[in-house]
């Protein structure tokens, strides 16, 4: 649009002779735009002038069957990737962790480890409870891969392998160490004075 010209239009008072040819106010303008002098609330006139919206409803005649087939086709297409999962193709091969067994039944851990970790993290960060059974640090200590020494450095590493396969994004490793600490094998240093704050 041409700014100066339009600004000039705005600047001119309606009483001015030159402005007389122009439309005076918005109500008139709206009707003028619609090409009719009649009242706005006339649906017939308006619908004729509306472009775009109304036409969406009158798509070229797609047959009912065509539409059903198209929908089914789209569903099948989106399902293709999960077919492999159902068929057990490319199941991740996980390295066995250190020690004989996991801290709990493997099926239980496999299903509930997100909740266990989440519960544990809140207890540790907010309440200062430092049990180790379900701690992420302990997971890392047992499951760090033999090649990388990490749970999340390569595609084969414990956490990444499975999460890649399941398509579940992880953000634990944005902050948490993926490798055990150097002193991890050594049990936590006992305080010189073994005094407990509580009943123990």
């Amino acid at each position: 649009m041409n700014a100066p010209e339009n600004l000039a239009t705005l600047g001119s008072p309606p009483e001015h002779p030159q402005g007389a040819g122009r439309v005076r106010n918005a109500a008139e303008a709206a009707t003028a735009t619609l090409g009719t002098k009649k009242h706005l609330g006339r649906p017939g006139v308006l619908l004729q002038r509306m472009n775009g919206m109304a036409r969406v409803a009158n798509l070229p005649d797609l047959g009912k069957w065509f539409r059903i087939v198209a929908c089914l086709g789209a569903m099948a297409f989106t399902a293709i990737p999960s077919m492999q999962v159902v068929a057990g193709v490319d199941l991740p091969k996980l390295e066995h962790g250190k020690g004989d067994k996991c801290v709990d039944d493997v099926a239980f851990i496999r299903r509930h480890h997100p909740d266990l970790l989440k519960h544990h993290r809140d207890e540790t960060v907010r309440l200062g409870i430092r049990t180790t059974k379900y701690s992420l640090k302990k997971c890392v200590e047992c499951h760090a891969g033999s090649k990388t020494g990490s749970v999340a450095s390569s595609k084969e590493d414990f956490c990444v392998a499975c999460h890649r396969y399941a398509g579940a994004k992880l953000d634990c490793w944005d902050c948490h160490a993926t490798k055990p600490g150097k002193q991890a094998a050594v049990p936590d240093a006992k305080p010189v004075l073994p005094l407990h704050g509580g009943s123990k």
Binding site: T9, L10, R22, V23
Partner: peptide, 17 residues
């Protein structure tokens, strides 16, 4: 508001302005 009026070749009433 001014842009809209100008877009539609309208003049906003002086009193309102």
């Amino acid at each position: 508001q001014a842009s809209m009026y100008s877009w539609n070749d309208l003049t906003l009433d002086l009193t309102i302005r």
